[in-house]
Structures are given as structure tokens and as C-alpha cells.
Amino acid sequence: MQYALIKAGRVTNVIVSSPEFAAQIAPQWERVEPLETEQNQGVGIGWMWNGARFLAPAHAHVAAPRMVSVLGFRRRFTPAEKAAIEWAAVDRADQPDAQRKQAAELRAMLADQAAATFIDLDDAATTGGVRKLEAMGLIGAGRAAQILGAPVQLEERP
């Protein structure tokens, strides 16, 4: 069955899945709406949801969501960057509290990534997290823009 995945009153993706999977991912969305009726045929990315029915987009161009798999996201980082991030996330008792807290924040970010179904490259938590890695010096200057701004490749898609 097809389902519309809705955020901020807009269809951001349409998937084909079982009802069980749709129920499992529902907490990540404002609404997961089945597209089983004839009136919902043709609903796609960019359509609006007014709480009762779908509305066709007013304009022809709708930006596609920029979502990648968790592995696809990790592969946007170099091996050296991944190693630096992992090393900075280690809790070392001999470090000052500020560094230990920063390591805990990194571990929490890594845990969130590992638990994610996909990574939305335009999500505020994603962009903020990658920019924070750059500010911490764990990735080079300008790398946040490269990691977040690179076009989504077919092999990166969830």
C-alpha cells in the first residue's frame, strides 16, 4: 500500500510499505496517510494536507527531499574525519568536565544517527550537528557545506 509522509502540512515523501511498517515510522512524521482511495491517486511530493484532504501544489516545481541512508551519510565523511569524531566521543576520566560533556554530546549525536531510519540533509538537527563538528575542528573548514550540500547520489538513498 502507498502512504504519504507528511511534515508541516506537506507531503515530503510517498512510500510503498506494509501497514505495520507505516505504523512503526509514524512517530517520525506529523501524519502518515494511506493513499488507498481513488481520490488520493496521483498524490505526491509537494502536495499539501489540510487535515482532511490533499491539495495539489500551486506551482509545478517542488524541491525533492534530500534524504540519505545512515550509511550514505557516514560515507560523506572521510575515514580520518570519522576517526576524529569517534576519538573525540571517547569519555576519558582525566579530561576536564567541558571536554567530557562535549564527548557525551558527540556520543548522543552518533547514537541518534545509528537509531535513524534515514538522514534528512535539510533537517535542523542534522545541519546543526555537522556545523558543530566543523566548529569543533573535527572536520575541516568548509566541509560542513560540502557534506550537507552535495547532491544525493542514487547509492545514498534510503
Rank of each mutant, 00 (worst) to 15 (best):
L71Q: 10
D91H: 06
Q99D: 14
T12C: 13
A4H: 02
A26E: 15
L35N: 08
M136K: 08
A52N: 13
A135F: 03
E30I: 03
A116V: 01
V152T: 09
V14G: 05
F118S: 13
F54Q: 10
A114P: 04
D122I: 08
A56F: 00
Q99I: 05
R75F: 05
A56G: 09
G128K: 04
P34R: 02
G42N: 07
Q2L: 10
K7E: 10
A56V: 09
A63D: 15
L71S: 11
Q113E: 12
P27K: 07
E105L: 09
L133V: 07
I6G: 02
R66Q: 05
R74T: 05
Q102F: 08
D122S: 13
D91R: 04
E30K: 06
F21A: 08
V130E: 15
R100V: 04
R92F: 07
A60R: 06
W87F: 09
E33M: 07
A124I: 11
L154T: 08
L133E: 04
P34F: 00
G42R: 05
P151A: 04
Y3G: 06
N13R: 14
L148Y: 13
Q113P: 02
V90M: 08
P65G: 10
A58K: 03
G51R: 10
R131G: 14
F118K: 05
L110D: 11
R143W: 01
E105N: 12
N13Y: 09
P27C: 10
P151F: 01
R143D: 15
V14L: 09
A144H: 07
Q41M: 06
R76H: 05
T12M: 05
T78A: 15
V62N: 14
I15V: 14
G129M: 08
E156D: 10
Q39T: 10
R31V: 03
G44I: 01
H61K: 11
A150R: 01
Q99H: 06
R131A: 15
Q102R: 13
A22H: 07
Q2T: 01
V62Y: 07
I147C: 01
G72W: 02
L106D: 04
K132M: 15
A103L: 04
T78K: 11
F118A: 08
I25C: 15
M67G: 02
Q41P: 03
D123F: 09
L110T: 03
A145H: 12
L106E: 06
I119G: 02
P158S: 06
P19G: 11
V43D: 00
